[in-house]
Design a protein around this nucleic acid. Structure first.
Lengths: 148, 148
DNA sequence: CAACAACAATTGTATGTACAAATGTAGGGT
DNA sequence: ACCCTACATTTGTACATACAATTGTTGTTG
């Protein structure tokens, strides 16, 4: 992606704003690919993230606030997000018996199955997005991103 | 930003998905800062982008489809975006006399003034976001981002 | 044990975004 | 001149997100 072709608003953009814009552009492109990849499964990127977090729990239920903390894109409305996964049968939800304020959410077997398929699809997508990167590039990029 | 602290969903995340998530996290952080910075001016990041593009036109009017092309985050709804800027008095809009399909949009003096203030505020924000980067880092980061 | 603050989740509302359909305009071919 | 296609914008609708207010629950303190 040649950022010069996209940033045409000024002749010379200083390095800092240029970097900021560049990241936004890259992020948008990634999002587009991810959304398109997940479209056949009829789940959003956010919903996918929730499923992935739930699988990471390895059977242990997660409550909403843990989900919120671990979500890549923070969102205020985890309730409605889980609602949609519930409708699709990918998660179960019940009130935590030890603390009835909390809600326990676990991923269902069906959820695990579709998640596996999504993983495969996303693997391909990631390779496509990162086709110009070798491992050294990726390490370097991650090191730089850690500076944020 | 230590991505390990945020990504707790799995013990070992392979390099590629890790990179993708990392970019999303960085982008979110940038967005939060940008939105907070622009909040006192009561404009969204998108609206700011439109104003910046219009200034880049140096007096020449821009029509909607040019705006759309140059917008960092593509959005389908430039009409309503311009509507809001119009209400605030930051832009003028009129039908293009030579081609009545087109709409010409120019930034007003008031728009230019507030834009200058926003620039100053965003300059500071950018420096804060990128405080851990020296010029060499930024060059390197941009080079890597160009690989996308 | 009653009052209160703190917590976890839900609901309401306003705003933002994506996608598709509709409106109005221009130009080309017959 | 008429029909058709392509273009530029607008409108409609469904969905996503941000922020604030509300509900229900827990534990603490007087």
């Amino acid at each position: 992606m040649k950022v010069e072709e996209i940033i045409k608003t000024a002749n010379e953009i200083p390095l800092k704003p240029r970097t900021i814009i560049h990241i936004a552009l890259v992020n948008n492109r990634i999002n587009e690919v991810m959304t398109a990849t997940l479209k056949p499964f009829e789940v959003s990127v956010q919903q996918f993230n929730v499923l992935r977090i739930l699988r990471g729990q390895q059977g242990k239920p997660a409550n909403l606030c843990t989900l919120n903390e671990r979500m890549v894109t923070k969102m205020s409305n985890t309730t409605r997000l889980v609602d949609k996964l519930l409708k699709k049968g990918y998660v179960n939800r019940c009130v935590c018996p030890s603390n009835r304020r909390k809600v326990e959410i676990v991923i269902t077997n069906e959820g695990l199955e579709v998640l596996e398929q999504m993983d495969k699809a996303l693997d391909k997508a990631h390779s496509t997005i990162l086709e110009n990167f070798d491992n050294r590039d990726l390490e370097q990029l991650n090191q730089l991103l850690d500076k944020f």
